[in-house]
Design a protein around this nucleic acid. Structure first.
Lengths: 135, 135
DNA sequence: GGCGGTTTTGACAATCATTATCGATAAGCG
DNA sequence: CGCTTATCGATAATGATTGTCAAAACCGCC
């Protein structure tokens, strides 16, 4: 049976209030800063649980897993600022059908795909374009 | 100055003759099996070197990096069998333009993207569909 | 409210890929 | 051939993640 613990809620909340993608370690630190005595292992477990339930998205970067809360049940992708980490959820219908078509043409079944777009958001672009204005 | 060592050549060759994506560890084992006394650290160095020179593609899976030789200089994506690891290079022109458009619409610049399609290839689909025929 | 069976937690150890270290080796050049 | 220095390789170090297991928390039920 699946149980309802305040720890799982705490992780879900912390994830929801985070701006972009966060690592398990960072999320754990945040929770500790807020006074939660939650354990690191529990954060890892809660995150993978949330992921398999479709309440969180994940991506790998530099050999660590980053997580982000997202609308449950919907399939979508992300546009991520590589400087400030801001994340925009994007729908990618044309890509969905393209992926299915390509897979089918090569005899592949059960196609899944990983699609993420990294870029520099307007603010960060502006900041980087101004040589005189150091942050 | 950049030097030419047989070790780098060995890694490049081993990568080229591999079927799909391979991990650094596996590649190292293969080289050892073939009689090379090459060191593990060297394989890692050679692989990241090849990657930054555009002679190899890389992707992260389960917290480990997988590499594959690919045509230098060309931009493309992969269709990967999640069972046998077979890899097909695919061009994704519609996705390229879609990614650029989406990035631009959200004010993002310098857009890069990660696009990989995982599936089960025809052979593996057939194998899995036959409960009686265990491999 | 109290009880029992089970799940979950949490501190810590273990694991595993990758990276750093550093003396030894050998590539390229004159 | 000898020198300079990039590269190698064995091993230690790192760091994220997972396993372990006793103690505590949760839930349905009485």
């Amino acid at each position: 049976m699946k149980r309802n613990t305040w720890q799982r809620e705490a992780v879900r909340t912390a994830l929801t209030t985070s701006e972009g993608f966060v690592s398990a370690q960072v999320l754990h630190s945040h929770l500790r800063d807020q006074g939660s005595p939650i354990g690191l292992a529990t954060v890892y477990r809660a995150l993978s649980s949330l992921e398999s339930e479709g309440e969180a998205d994940t991506l790998q970067q530099d050999g660590e897993s980053l997580y982000r809360a997202c609308t449950p049940g919907t399939h979508h992708h992300h546009l991520i600022c590589r400087t400030c980490g801001k994340t925009v959820e994007i729908s990618a219908d044309p890509v969905e059908s393209w992926a299915q078509k390509v897979a089918a043409e090569n005899g592949f079944t059960q196609a899944e795909h990983v699609v993420d777009v990294f870029g520099t958001c307007a603010e960060c672009s502006a900041a980087l374009a101004e040589p005189g204005r150091v942050v």
